[in-house]
Design a binder for these strands. Structure first.
Lengths: 352, 352
DNA sequence: TGAGGTTAGTAAATCGATTTACCAAAAATA
DNA sequence: TATTTTTGGTAAATCGATTTACTAACCTCA
């Protein structure tokens, strides 16, 4: 009741200081040099301090067109890869005075289109997106009005800024590592997907196998988040139908998790029946017994670069010259026991 | 260049329809009944459609004071418990036309205070917070101006809406389960923390042990995200100094993960040296060998309730009567092999 | 016929900032 | 002293909606 005015505005400050809102605004925005006397500046600042005045960012945004908000659209915020990125981008954003709005696309282009629309209406300043296949047109349209940077995957047929890891190369070296460790029948479990990160990883596998003249075993899963059971069975069937396989490369973390479940159900063991390697890190892989070799993506660098590129796009967005930045970061192979040579075990069940 | 006007506004619509912005606004907001003739309504709607006009949400927000934005402050968005909640809340929010801004507090009250300030300035409509200890005052102050709902933990000394699980009860039954399975020397690894979820879980453990007249072993860890090594060593030391322990209860997922690392380094095995149970689910626990018993929190219900309570707070916030809703949801014990009776194994190493 | 009611609208204030264009007084210059 | 420049400042338009208060025209019915 007796509280001071609910919300205090620039007018109140101007009135209290006996000056105009123009002057207060200049002071607030550091445009006061040589326009306002030091004495008045001081006076206004003191009053602002006293009244604990904060400009309404809504009014500012309405006037300037900047909301200091960035939309982060990921496939699934509960996937540790994406939530890791989300955390890092969030921290960086906070440091720079931006807020992040997020949403999970679930890799659904329809849902994505809706989200793009929604956030555009909210006048976010820019977008960081891990795009689903099929969203190219919507994202290209968006890009005409708003800065956009893609990450994790991109559209090769379009020229848009993006930050990704070198999927093909890392997968290639990962599979080579298994081959070098005497696994000659490496299977690959991947998503049925045209997205670049998936095609890249698969291609890395293919090249490694072909280069060594080895037979390829590939299972391409049609992933749906609510059909885990079906997928586990599909993978188990893959194991069963290819008894010659002695190693597995999973192209993404959640596939590997399902693959491990499938092994459990089939009474197969990592390090005994299969060597296992996976793209993406996960607590599970680190602590599994035996620990599982992974291709680890440098989250911090991806987040950092994606943010930088976006800032850059925002700065140059209205200028005539457009610079598209395509950044490819190397991933690192983290070798653990799951891919150590155990061919002796698998035959006799005991150590030499 | 030749593109239509960059941004079209309600004035353009009014002009095109030969009417006033008032009328357009009425039509837009469904307040046109009996104020505007059906013919004009139709005409205006058609023009809106043609020009693909969308009202500026910034202008709307400035005028109405509603931003349709909810701030979600969690301890760590990359923790699967929180990212799971974030995903569910995000979905619900999108359905209701809200956007979510998030940030990780890292359980740091200073950082939290800054974030509360930041988001208040951005005029979010409400807050969903998993509060760090020490943030009580800031959050109470905030609560005077904005709807707030806490989750995962709360402040018993203050009366604020919150949604939590029944930590004490679930922990109690979890520990009882281990005791019933013949583990008599159950240790508890918990956070050094006054937060209710932690004290509740610890108390559940204490009660279960005391009720059975058993000796308690408790390790209280001072958690810092960047000191994992130190903590692993601390936990390993705890194992070593209490050779009598035959079971472990971890009060949260990341402690358990560190605890498993400590076991790995100490050459101890779940299901042989220790029964293990953990509060919170995790892919790792499900697929560990042996799979680890957990107390699983019902993410969907927590998210759903937190959102509902917040909506409720928002609706009643300006009204005279204040309703505080305190919701406690039961968690469920998911029994897996890590707590099955293996006393025979641990002695002889072989099955009866 | 004239008091009151209904219908179909609109003008203008407002939310809270930024920014352009302008001005008076003081200082500098000629 | 007269003119120009600088200093220090302000009025008012603007961003794009919502909302209050008002009105003109027509209708109704005693």
């Amino acid at each position: 009741m007796s509280k001071k005015k609910d919300k205090i505005s620039i007018k109140d400050i101007a009135a209290a200081a006996g000056t105009s809102t123009t002057t207060v605004s200049f002071i607030l925005n550091g445009k006061a040099d040589h326009k306002v006397s030091p004495a008045l500046i001081e006076k206004v600042l003191k009053i602002i301090e006293e009244k604990n005045y904060r400009p309404s960012s809504l009014a500012q945004s309405l006037r300037t067109g900047k909301t200091n908000t960035i939309a982060l659209l990921v496939e699934d915020i509960s996937n540790p890869f994406f939530s890791g990125i989300a955390r890092l981008i969030g921290e960086r954003a906070a440091r720079e005075g931006y807020q992040i709005v997020y949403s999970s696309t679930e890799n659904d282009p329809k849902k994505t289109a809706t989200l793009l629309d929604f956030f555009t209406e909210k006048q976010v300043d820019g977008f960081i997106i891990s795009p689903p296949a099929g969203a190219l047109n919507d994202i290209q349209a968006l890009r005409k009005n708003k800065p956009v940077v893609l990450f994790d995957r991109y559209f090769p047929q379009a020229s848009m800024s993006h930050v990704v890891v070198d999927n093909q190369m890392s997968a290639f070296h990962g599979v080579r590592h298994m081959i070098n460790n005497k696994f000659k029948n490496v299977g690959c479990v991947t998503l049925h997907s045209d997205q670049t990160q998936m095609t890249g990883r698969l291609q890395g596998y293919n090249e490694a196998m072909e280069q060594s003249g080895l037979k390829k075993y590939t299972l391409s899963v049609d992933y749906k988040a609510d059909e885990h059971d079906r997928i586990v069975l599909e993978i188990a069937k893959f194991y069963k139908e290819n008894p010659g396989m002695d190693a597995l490369f999973f192209t993404t973390n959640y596939l590997a998790i399902l693959g491990l479940e499938a092994m459990q159900r089939s009474n197969l063991k990592v390090g005994k029946d299969f060597a296992v390697m996976c793209f993406d890190e996960h607590d599970l892989f680190r602590l599994y017994s035996p620990p599982i070799t992974v291709i680890s993506q440098p989250l911090a660098e991806i987040a950092e670069n994606a943010f930088n590129v976006l800032i850059n796009e925002m700065e140059t967005h209205s200028s005539a010259i457009k610079r598209v930045e395509m950044i490819e970061i190397p991933a690192t192979l983290v070798i653990r026991q799951s891919t150590s040579n155990f061919s002796n075990f698998s035959i006799t069940g005991s150590v030499f």
